[in-house]
Design a protein around this nucleic acid. Structure first.
Length: 632
RNA sequence: GGGCCCGUGGCCAAGCCAGGAUAAAGGCGUCGGCCUUCGGAGCCGGAGAACCUGGGUUCAAAUCCCAGCGGGCCCGCCA
């Protein structure tokens, strides 16, 4: 029984005590600010005092005397401190319970009972005309950690990546290659995705300035949407080449998918047509007959409270040239996610991924895909898309999404570059003075994920080699790769999703302090102790912990499920990072002060503590996609 | 014009949604210690904070409410 269970148990006891005293209510149970005050506390006496005009200190006394403390197993002491009711566990009993639970549950330690839900997570969503950059990587890492967390807790999770192959970005590249004969072969030594990003940056500007080119682009989009023609086939092959590169990058970062949903297939499957017709027949979509948007199919938002204050609330679903907008397609796609549409995607197997899972892709000559919708559809998108996502949510309600089915845009802030990094990347000296510089594909201010990996890897490799001169090259490279990937992943989910990450190369190549390599190093240290002890421990009947280092570490291990519970309720991933770091900090303090292997052999209770630590940290690593290394 | 987010030591940042304990984590940087016992990517200690400002609610506000200020973003027949 860990902290989560004990907190719940104490809450129930307090509630029962309240009831016996003739009060109703639910006690809040929290952690005291400092361990000296106890393991758990409730300020419920203050709530009663306010409600019933009592003195909080006296109320606390009455509650304590009504508590059936003897029935509370691991509890050692209850006291009233200025109205706070503080509970203290018997440290030995609690330690034995926590460690035994970890040692017996192992890979399942941290799980708690949940009602399993069907969850769909969409992430990455990079246009198929450029390489993944640190911004899309934040998106992908967040999505990947969400998927790992929710799977760990027992939910049925499917991970999808939306390939926007029918928008104007890809059309710009098709115009450049197919009609303007820009070579399709990248220059020697350049990846295809990076090359296409450069071609896009060059041509999008030209096209924007030239009416004839804009007309051609519109025709290209129309042809791509229509399908069954040479341009559309060319576009699909082009996009597939880019997506293959993007997948390779993602896989390198241990990010995997179940299904790629191509935007053109939202159209060809009839899902888009279904959504538009449904909105029309429900009176939510109409053809604009005058003004700026003449000839467009619009969704009616002007009467909706949350959109009513906008200058022009209604949104375009289908352009006057007959092509679909992003919002229009996204509404249809979202309806599919929740199983609202009777139309199906056709899919086929595309790759066997390095993690062993098959990757499906939608394709016109595939087989009908049997998916009847998620209970919860999470879309990981950056904050700039909050407004269109609101439109999607509104449209889903109008399409009859039942209240128990949830569409959740998971909004996170973007990654910007520090002035220094932007300056070094572009060679533009003026940028150096800026606190941050937003990335821009068109301006060529982009830090690509592969370049980031290379930069971090170089630093990690040197460091690993220096510390392990006797290890062979293959080992050093493998360990360096894992450390680099973990370091980058950790840096992208440890920050609150509402905060902009100002990416800086100096900071990214740091391997000390609040970094994944620190966590992995700590884990490896623990593994060495287990190895050197040369005895295993799988359960414990007694312990003689008496140092603050031992007890803090036990408490932190016991809090694992409590943290995961909070993470699953709030979907805040940074709290898992904070937890892991505290866990590592506590282990390292313990390591300094409490020898495990002594002259008389290993102390079994401490050995059990070390093993419980590796189990807990190991499970946290699984959830966050950090490789468990026994040696670094 | 409307809307969203952020503002905590020199820098980054946890805590804020579910208000509590006159001790507000941690990291970087800085100053000083620790490698003859399990790995120094570590540990121990020091200095460093008007929790943006002003009101309000409350027994209690970094946390909730209101008004400002500063920074970022969104409101396109782009995505």
């Amino acid at each position: 029984m860990g902290f989560l269970e004990e907190a719940e148990r104490i809450r129930i006891h307090v509630d029962q005590a309240l009831e016996r005293l003739g009060f109703t209510g639910r006690a809040r149970v929290e952690e005291p600010p400092i361990p000296e005050l106890g393991d758990l506390a409730t300020p419920v006496a203050f709530d009663l005092a306010r409600k019933h005009g009592l003195n909080p200190v006296e109320a606390a006394d009455r509650i304590i005397s009504s508590l059936e403390a003897s029935k509370m197993e691991v509890l050692k002491h209850v006291e009233n401190v200025n109205g706070f009711i503080n509970f203290r566990f018997d440290p030995v009993k609690y330690s034995v319970k926590v460690l035994n639970e970890a040692l017996s549950k192992r890979g399942d330690y941290g799980k708690f009972p949940v009602a399993s839900r069907k969850i769909l997570i969409e992430h990455t969503n990079s246009n198929p005309n450029k390489a993944l950059h640190v911004g899309t990587l934040r998106n992908a890492v967040i999505g990947d950690v969400l998927a790992r967390l929710l799977r760990f807790l027992g939910h049925e999770v499917i991970v999808v990546n939306y390939i926007d192959d029918s928008g104007s970005q890809v059309a710009d590249n098709i115009l450049a290659h197919y009609f303007m004969k820009t070579p399709l072969e990248p220059p020697e030594g350049t990846r295809f995705d990076e090359y296409s990003g450069r071609v896009y940056a060059e041509y999008s500007e030209k096209i924007e300035k030239d009416e004839e080119l804009r007309r051609m682009r519109s025709e290209i989009i129309r042809k791509i949407e229509e399908g069954g023609n040479e341009v559309a086939d060319f576009a699909r092959l082009f996009s597939e080449k880019v997506v293959e590169c993007q997948l390779e990058t993602a896989w390198g970062f241990r990010i995997f998918y179940d299904l790629l949903n191509w935007e053109t297939d939202v159209l060809r499957s009839g899902i888009f047509e279904w959504a538009v017709n449904e909105l029309k027949s429900r009176g939510e979509a109409y053809l604009e007959e005058e003004g700026e948007n003449k000839g467009c199919l619009m969704i009616r938002l002007r009467d909706v409270e949350e959109f009513s204050r906008l200058k022009a609330p209604d949104e375009v679903l289908v352009r006057s040239d007959g092509t679909a907008t992003y919002v229009g397609k996204d509404i249809a796609y979202a309806a599919w996610k929740l199983g609202l549409t009777p139309r199906r995607f056709r899919v086929k197997k595309w790759f066997k991924q390095p993690n062993g899972r098959t990757l499906l892709t939608t394709h016109w000559d595939g087989e009908e895909y049997d998916y009847h919708g998620a209970d919860l559809a999470i879309t990981v998108v950056d904050k700039r898309q909050e407004y269109p996502q609101k439109v999607v949510e509104h449209a889903l309600r109008k399409l009859g999404a039942p209240p128990e089915k949830k569409y959740l845009p998971y909004l996170y802030e973007v990654v910007a570059l520090s002035g220094e990094t932007a300056s070094e990347l572009t060679g533009v000296e003026e940028l150096r003075e800026r606190r941050m510089v937003h990335m821009s594909g068109r301006k060529g201010i982009v830090f690509n994920a592969n370049d980031l990996f290379k930069t971090v890897f170089q630093k990690v490799y040197e460091e690993t080699l220096r510390r392990n001169p006797s290890k062979d090259e293959e080992w050093v490279r493998s360990v360096s790769t894992h450390l680099s990937v973990a370091s980058i992943r950790y840096s992208l989910f440890k920050t609150d999703k509402n905060n902009i990450i100002v990416f800086d190369v100096k900071d990214a190549t740091r391997l000390e302090g609040d970094t994944a390599p620190y966590l992995q190093y700590t884990y490896a240290r623990a593994c060495r102790i287990l190895e050197k002890a040369s005895v295993d421990v799988n359960s414990l009947t007694e312990a003689s912990f008496n140092t603050p280092e031992e007890l803090s570490l036990v408490r932190q291990i016991g809090k694992f499920s409590w943290v995961l519970n909070m993470a699953s309720e709030t979907l805040a991933l940074n709290i898992i990072a904070v937890y892991m770091r505290h866990l590592a900090d506590m282990f390292n303090s313990f390591y300094e002060k409490c020898p495990v292997i002594t002259g008389e052999g290993p102390r079994m209770d401490r050995l059990a503590l070390v093993k419980a630590f590796t189990i807990t940290m190991g499970n946290a690593f699984e959830i966050t996609g950090i490789e468990k290394l026994n040696e670094v």
